[in-house]
Each structure stands twice: as structure tokens, then as C-alpha cells.
Design a protein around this nucleic acid. Structure first.
Lengths: 363, 363
DNA sequence: GTTAGCACTCTCCATACCCGAGTGCTAATA
DNA sequence: TATTAGCACTCGGGTATGGAGAGTGCTAAC
């Protein structure tokens, strides 16, 4: 990153002007609108250099300059000032969160909605999960002769269900007996511990225990599948989506199936906000989009991911602060609800617990 | 409906030609492409009459004719031949259904996907529900001092959960006691019956019972909220969506929140397929769309709704047959799974149980 | 190193234009 | 009376044309 002071300042101006106006920015738009104390000719020279180095590009001769992915990256990394969200913006968000009910699923949905509205882009929030789920309780409810519904309560009040088929007819009393025995034997266990356990069990009990273990393992492995999406409309109304084929492209990205694949939820830093810009994504389909993503949740415990999706032409500073803030809020809500993270103060009243993650960005 | 034989035939041709080509159809396109044994001049005269009566309309002078909502309605009601789906189409659909697992939710999702693909439009399938849910079992699982997760199992293996707050700290043993008592008192009850019940209960037990009743009532009232949507892409690629504002309109319609409001799931006939065309919808937003909708499920018992959403220019006969067929398949799967409807034969192997609903359409 | 000046390039927009499809009318025909 | 041939008319869509404007790159002067 060998940018002279002046060139850096120009790049910064180009980015913020282009983000605001969505129009390629020309040399004397810069000197006029922003107080650049240089002539347009000088600016042009500098722009030519910036283009040579790959920070900006030309849609065609005689159009202004547009930041390239590299330009945005440099801006995010070094140029922009990573200031905190203004108080009233925070207040607005907090206010919206006060409508939250007690259902965890509702929180996720609400977070996505609030985030999408605040940054005027699309937002995705995955359901929270623990790194390794632990069994709290099993229930078996008979449905038919040879079928029962097994309900698994995991720690943190997560619920799983599946229908189980038995090789022989079985009545509710026996189901209850099995349940009691298994609850006694496995309470607090993880999937692995159930598998390794040496407890004496009948064949039927093993049948159930194996199913439980499978379900818990699946829950540990997957987890990012459930995700709430909001604000696609925001993205579609942006000027870059004037042509219908772009719209189709976005829709493919957004289609539930792909979403969790395209957004790199997995390779997500333990804390801090990560930004991925345009072609930095592995997927071709994401070439025109940027993603601002953060983990939320209690440290090392239950948590999920939260992301903003929009065109590369995005208000990065505001978006990053907003994601950080909303992730902080949701984390506090989770922590105070599950009562394990021991976050001081009331949720949403103090500053979010993000002071230390400030400015951590990826790549 | 005072249409001469000939005029009806012409209208029918106009509709099917326009549905295929998406281009306004002119008088001699009809005589040339379809074996109309009349001169284009005569056809023009007839068209003028049809237009007077409101069955077709003119985008502008010197364009061909386009069916109006009334024209489509007449076509659906009287003109089209409501033939059954060809064997191989059925076979393709059955084949896709064989991938279905045991999860009810999966079925819904799969149905939407299969339906959307088959009719090349968007499809919505709501989760099934019973008319009046009945309690099968309650479980209480302590989470914190004063909080517990109440898990309610309803008949047909439907699960509801909510976090419940108690006015005082309470341990698992007391929770279990409450559970046992309530299960004994209320097993098999509907929400109303719980409310009217005269059983002697402690204050805490009432606390729980009320919560359970509320949840069950909410489940009975709502129910169509959960819906799977698939195939929006199909709709967007249709030529009527060339302009971006149309796309936005569709997206608003499709946004999860609105969907269940805009599609008249509630006023749905007990059986048979219902068609709503364009401005027949109450909502303005739906003015350009048609919906082909059907109930599925066991007669009078558990069931949901299944709908196809597309532009008014839609292949009505095929869509109607397909909806009917897929609804029939899903109904069979539900019936054989819950074993109450006693449908003979294996699911998907016999003809679907739709012979009697043929041709029932609305308005 | 910076700046003024200028020719050049390219997009965007409006105008004009024609072509063809399709209509509606009238008069001739069976 | 119903049908048809003929014809003038209308309108949308595609294609050339021609600035206007914005912005560049280069050169020469400061």
C-alpha cells in the first residue's frame, strides 16, 4: 500500500462521493464540491496514477472514475475513519429492539429487520447455536403403535423433534420408562459423550439414544441453515439494479438455498466485524456484492452470525458501526437471557460490549 | 354469458394463443395459425363485439387483442377443457415426491418446490394444521429460577413452545408435579375445553394452563402464517416483468409478511381448486396476478392450503390440474401418515383422490 | 510540481423517420 | 343478411442523426 498522502486523500474522496452519488466522479467535481486545493488538471494526473495502481477504474473514456474492489478495500482498511454510531442512531435502534418479545426466533427476525432498515441494504441473521449442544431432557410421545415423537430439549432451551419408528408396537408406559432412564443417564451430555457412554441400556433404549445423538450431531454440524433475511427491497431499489438481469442475479443469491452457502458464515472471526468486497468472495455470483459480517453471542458460547448484503457501492463506515452495534445488542440480549455471559448493566442501555473489537477487519 | 358459439371459440383461441406467445394476438394470426375457417375481416368484426362485451381489450389502436380478466374468467369457467394431467407429468411429480423424508416440514417445502417447477410459476404451501387442535401432552423444563420452557405437544405431533415466567422461584420437582397434574386433567382437551374446565388447580397450575390455552388458541386462529414459497424466479423471468418496477411490485407481494395476507387462504373452499384472476383479488397489489389455490389434507381434519402465483397470463388448465394433483398427493401422504383418513392404497401409486372435485371453481 | 488551455472522445438525449402489424370502415359478393 | 376483399389510417418500435455536456489526456507555460 504505497499511496502518497495526497493520493490517499483523493481516493477517499472518490469513494465517498461515488458511494453517495452512484455516478462516476470526475476530476473537477472533486475540486468543486470537496475543498480540494488543487486544480482539476493535477487531480487528473493523480487519478491516472491511482488507476495505474488499480484503485479506481474507468467505465469508458470520458466518464468519471469508479472505485475498484481494491480501492474499496484500501478505503475500508486504512482510509475511512471508523467512528462510532451517533447517539441518536443508536437510540433509534434500541427503541426498535424494545418491541422484542421473549422468543429467540423473534429476536433474530427483529435483528434482521432493524439492521436492514438501518443500513438500507439487505440483512441476514442466522439463528444462534452453541458450539457443542448439551442434552437437557428427552421426551417420547407415542403417536401410533410403532411410532413416537421424540422431543429433545437442549441447553439454552433449544428444541429438536423427530418422529421415531420402533421395530415393534410400544405403549406409552414403556416410552416413559425409556425416557426416565435416558434422562438419568445422559442429562448434560454432549453428542460425543452419549456415543462414548458405557451405560447399560436395552436395545430399544439404544435405538432412541442413537437417534438423539444423530439429531444432536446434525444440530452441531449444521446450524447456520436457519437464517432470517430482510430488506432485499432496499437493495433492489438502488440504481445499480436498473436492469432486470441484475435483479435476477440478486434473486438467485438471495434464494434461501444459496444464501448460507454464499455468505462465508463459517470462516468468521471470533469477534469483530469482517468485510468482504466484490470479487474477494469465492463465489462468482457475489462478484458485485459486498458483505459486512459479524459474529454475535456470548464469548465461546451460544452465538450466530449477522451480515449485511449490498452492492459494493455501500456506506462502509456506517454499515460497519451498525453491524457492530446491533451484534452487540443482540449479544447482550442473549447473554442476559441465558444468564451465563454476565454482562453488566441492562441490555441496550450501556454502550455495547464492542469497544475492544473496534477496527478489526479482515484480509 | 351470452356468447355465440363462434365468439366463444374465438375467445378461447385468443386466450390460449396469448398465453403461449405473450404477444397481443391479431385477427389474421388467428386465421393463419389456427384453423379458423373465416376471413380475418370477419374475425375482426367478432373481436370488436368481444371487446364491446369486455372479454378482450386493446393495448392501443393497431395492436392485437389481449384477454381481460373477464375474458380469462370466462375461459376458465366455461371454455377450457379441464382435462387430467397426462400420465408422464404425473409420473415426474410422483418421482420427485419419493425423495420426501419423514419430516412434515420437509413435505411442505418439497411440495412448493415441485409445484413451482411443474407449473413454471411461484408456489406457496402453508403448513398443515387442524381445525381445532387438541392437547396431547405438556412438558415443563426449568431454565432459570423463575423461568421454564413449556413444550406443548398437540395431536398430530405438532409442537409448540414458549418460555414461561413464574412469580416465584420454582424447582424441577414442582414443575414435574404440575405437568403430571395438568396432563392428567387436560389430555385430549381443546383450548376451549381447557378454558371451561372446572378442575381444581393451584394458582401456579392455572398460570401454566392459561399459557397453554393461549398458545393453543393462537395456533388455531393463525396457522397460515408459516408458508413455504418457491419459484419466484420463474415468475420474474416472464416477459411481463421486463421493467424493474414490476419486479419491485412482485417482490412486495412475495415478501413473507404480505404473502399470507394477499392470498385468500381463509376463504378457501372445502375442496376443489379455486382460481382468482387479476382484479378479482381484494388487494390492489395483486391486480396483475392470478392465483390457483386448493386445500389439501384429510377431510375435515388436518390440512393446509396450496397455491400457485403467477401473472394473469397463465396456463390455467395445466396449472389447475397440477395443483389438484399435487394437493391430492400431499393429502394422501398426510392421511397415510396420520392414519386417520383411511385412504386406500399406497401414497402416490393410485390415482389421487380428486375425481369428485374436478371442475369446481370459484366465482 | 502545478496549472491553464484545448482538442478529442464518448454517453446521453431528443428528434425525426420509416416500417410493419393491425385495425376499422366501406363496398362488393354469395 | 352474413361474409369478404380492399384500403386508408394509426400507432409502436427500431434505427439513424445530431448536438450538448461531461470528462479526459496531452502539451506548453508558469
Amino acid at each position: 500500500m504505497s499511496l502518497s498522502e495526497r493520493r490517499a486523500r483523493l481516493l477517499s474522496l472518490i469513494v465517498s462521493e461515488f458511494v453517495d452519488s452512484a455516478v462516476p466522479v470526475g476530476s473537477d467535481a472533486l475540486v468543486r464540491k470537496h475543498g480540494v486545493r488543487l486544480s482539476s488538471a493535477t487531480v487528473r494526473n493523480e487519478m491516472a496514477k491511482l488507476e495505474e495502481e488499480g484503485y479506481i477504474s474507468h467505465p469508458h473514456t470520458s466518464a468519471g472514475r469508479v472505485p475498484s474492489d481494491k480501492g474499496y478495500r484500501c478505503y475500508v482498511e486504512a482510509l475511512m475513519e471508523d467512528r462510532d454510531l451517533p447517539w441518536d442512531a443508536k437510540q433509534t435502534i434500541r427503541h426498535q429492539f424494545h418491541q422484542a418479545g421473549r422468543e429467540e426466533d423473534e429476536w433474530i427476525q427483529l435483528s434482521a429487520a432493524v439492521l436492514a432498515r438501518a443500513v438500507e441494504n439487505a440483512a441476514v441473521v442466522t439463528a444462534p447455536r452453541t458450539r457443542e449442544s448439551r442434552l437437557k431432557r428427552i421426551e417420547l410421545i407415542g403417536i401410533q403403535d410403532t411410532e413416537a415423537l421424540v422431543v429433545i430439549v437442549l441447553q439454552q432451551a433449544r428444541l429438536k423433534q423427530q418422529i421415531l419408528i420402533f421395530p415393534e408396537p410400544i405403549e406409552q408406559e414403556r416410552l416413559t420408562a425409556i425416557t426416565n432412564h435416558l434422562n438419568e443417564a445422559f442429562a448434560g451430555f454432549s453428542a460425543g459423550e452419549i456415543g462414548r457412554s458405557q451405560v447399560q441400556l436395552t436395545q430399544l433404549e439404544w435405538h432412541v439414544a442413537n437417534a438423539v445423538r444423530d439429531i444432536m450431531e446434525a444440530s452441531d454440524r449444521g446450524g447456520y441453515d436457519e437464517a432470517h433475511l430482510d430488506g432485499v427491497r432496499n437493495v433492489l431499489t438502488k440504481p445499480e439494479f436498473a436492469s432486470p438481469d441484475k435483479v435476477l442475479n440478486l434473486l438467485d443469491v438471495v434464494e434461501q438455498r444459496n444464501l448460507t452457502k454464499l455468505i462465508p458464515f463459517r470462516e468468521l472471526a471470533a469477534e469483530g466485524v469482517t468485510v468482504m468486497i466484490g470479487a474477494e468472495h469465492e463465489e462468482d455470483a457475489m462478484r458485485d456484492y459486498s458483505v459486512v459480517i459479524s459474529r454475535y453471542g456470548t464469548p465461546g458460547g451460544i452465538g450466530g452470525a449477522m451480515a449485511v448484503l449490498g452492492p459494493t457501492r455501500m456506506h462502509y463506515p456506517e454499515t460497519i458501526s451498525t453491524v457492530r452495534f446491533v451484534a452487540g445488542l443482540l449479544s447482550e440480549m442473549l447473554a442476559s437471557h441465558y444468564g451465563e455471559g454476565s454482562v453488566p448493566g441492562e441490555p441496550g442501555d450501556g454502550p455495547p460490549a464492542d469497544g475492544d473489537t473496534r477496527g478489526k477487519k479482515r484480509k
